[in-house]
Computed example of a mutant assay.
Amino acid sequence: MDTEHDWINTPLTADLLRGALDVEHTERGLLPHRLPARARAQNTDGQLAMAESQPSGVRLAFRTRATAVELDTLPTKRNYVGAPPRPDGVYDLIVDGRLAGQGSVTDGNVMVVDMMAGTAEHRPGPPGTVRFTGLADADKDVEIWLPHNETTELLALRTDAPVEPARDRGRRVWLHHGSSISHGSDAASPTGIWPARAATLGGVELINLGLGGSALLDPFTARTLRDTPAHVISVKIGINLVNADLMRLRAFGPAVHGFLDTIREGHPTTPLLVVSPILCPIHEDTPGPCAPDFSGMSEGRLRFVALGDPAERASGKLTLGVIRDELSRIVKQRSAGDPNLHYLDGRDLYGDTDFAELPLPDDLHPDAATHHRIGERFAQLAFTADGPFA
């Protein structure tokens, strides 16, 4: 702890958090969740459990005139056997709407993943502190965006001036669901993930249900979307269903209808945007499953390959092309009786020209620059005057 300041300890409570749908009270503090307890109780998949506990889009939000802020956390990091250590997660400090600092917690638990063996080992570690100093001695709105890719238990908040929960800015709430790309894979920081960038440009409050590897049309996710208050909603569907090789075309169509039906039970007239996958050449015409290529792991390069056979489309296997056609058909069919339902082709966010300039580094996920581009494109297409969220 920095001893140069007269610290005030502010109890960590749910009213200081935005973007979390549930808060678990642990022995040490608070653990934000992006799925409610009821949904978590119905899940048996470790990948989803990890993804929903990683606080993508979750931020502490408060008003203060403090010049120094310290946050104690216990992160859970991931390292992969045979690969160089992953960089520490980033905390973004936003003051009055602008990025004012970044930091990391180097300590914490570590989940050691052996992708070849399919195992994971949890190694406990100590908590750490991220601190921001030199802030203006004036009333200001402060947000600390938590690392989008590290489960983060919140232990203590210290400031050198009193803190109160952030004021309601009267902004609309945008509820978004998608895959690891929406979660923020390979983005540089939590405000650099494409949904956060789009939310900033669109002037909305983000609730991000981007769940790495887990946009799989799960009914409990649909019920979560149904039960979460929002002014506009988007669902990005497709890539995980292909790379998990989870279902065939016969099941996909009814599953999409059911997912949308459930959302509409709670949001009958809310603008709802269905977004198909961005361009991903390995899966455009080749079904899953998708598998990692370990040949470059020791040099820090991980790539993904599609293991399906294009001929299997005839038996109902899904590709991104098949999914786009079906989503377009479903939205067109439903929109005749639902004028607030809209469709966006993901290739309008990232397509062939973008791939030529900014290829996917691992053949599956966009890099930091591409996250910015996708966010700017989405804001332009969804939030401007002609967009469905205008």
Score class of each variant (00 low, 15 high):
residue 225 L to I: 13
residue 226 R to S: 13
residue 140 K to F: 09
residue 38 R to F: 11
residue 162 P to T: 10
residue 5 H to I: 00
residue 205 E to D: 14
residue 43 N to I: 15
residue 41 A to Y: 03
residue 182 S to K: 06
residue 53 S to H: 05
residue 218 D to R: 15
residue 289 P to F: 12
residue 180 S to Q: 11
residue 184 G to L: 05
residue 249 L to C: 02
residue 30 L to D: 04
residue 93 L to K: 01
residue 316 G to M: 07
residue 91 Y to D: 02
residue 264 R to M: 12
residue 183 H to E: 03
residue 297 M to Q: 07
residue 151 T to F: 02
residue 143 E to L: 08
residue 317 K to R: 15
residue 15 D to R: 12
residue 359 P to H: 11
residue 380 Q to G: 10
residue 205 E to R: 06
residue 209 L to R: 03
residue 229 P to D: 02
residue 293 D to V: 12
residue 360 L to C: 11
residue 109 N to M: 00
residue 107 D to E: 14
residue 202 G to R: 11
residue 195 P to S: 09
residue 354 D to H: 14
residue 216 L to V: 10
residue 179 S to P: 00
residue 151 T to S: 12
residue 22 D to H: 13
residue 191 T to F: 01
residue 81 V to P: 06
residue 306 A to K: 09
residue 89 G to P: 10
residue 280 C to H: 00
residue 151 T to A: 15
residue 94 I to M: 13
residue 301 R to A: 10
residue 66 A to E: 08
residue 24 E to Y: 01
residue 323 I to Y: 08
residue 324 R to Y: 10
residue 281 P to F: 04
residue 115 M to V: 08
residue 147 P to K: 04
residue 183 H to K: 03
residue 257 H to T: 03
residue 220 F to S: 10
residue 1 M to E: 13
residue 227 D to L: 02
residue 262 T to S: 02
residue 231 H to C: 03
residue 145 W to P: 01
residue 208 N to I: 05
residue 76 T to L: 14
residue 360 L to R: 13
residue 172 R to D: 15
residue 386 D to E: 08
residue 56 S to E: 00
residue 182 S to L: 04
residue 257 H to I: 01
residue 257 H to Y: 07
residue 234 S to T: 05
residue 49 A to S: 08
residue 166 A to W: 07
residue 291 A to T: 14
residue 295 S to F: 09
residue 29 G to P: 01
residue 64 T to Y: 09
residue 87 P to D: 10
residue 129 T to M: 10
residue 178 G to A: 05
residue 212 G to Q: 00
residue 21 L to A: 01
residue 175 L to G: 04
residue 172 R to K: 15
residue 273 L to W: 02
residue 22 D to F: 04
residue 57 G to E: 09
residue 99 L to D: 00
residue 95 V to D: 04
residue 153 E to R: 02
residue 255 A to R: 06
residue 124 P to S: 14
residue 324 R to C: 07
residue 211 L to Y: 10
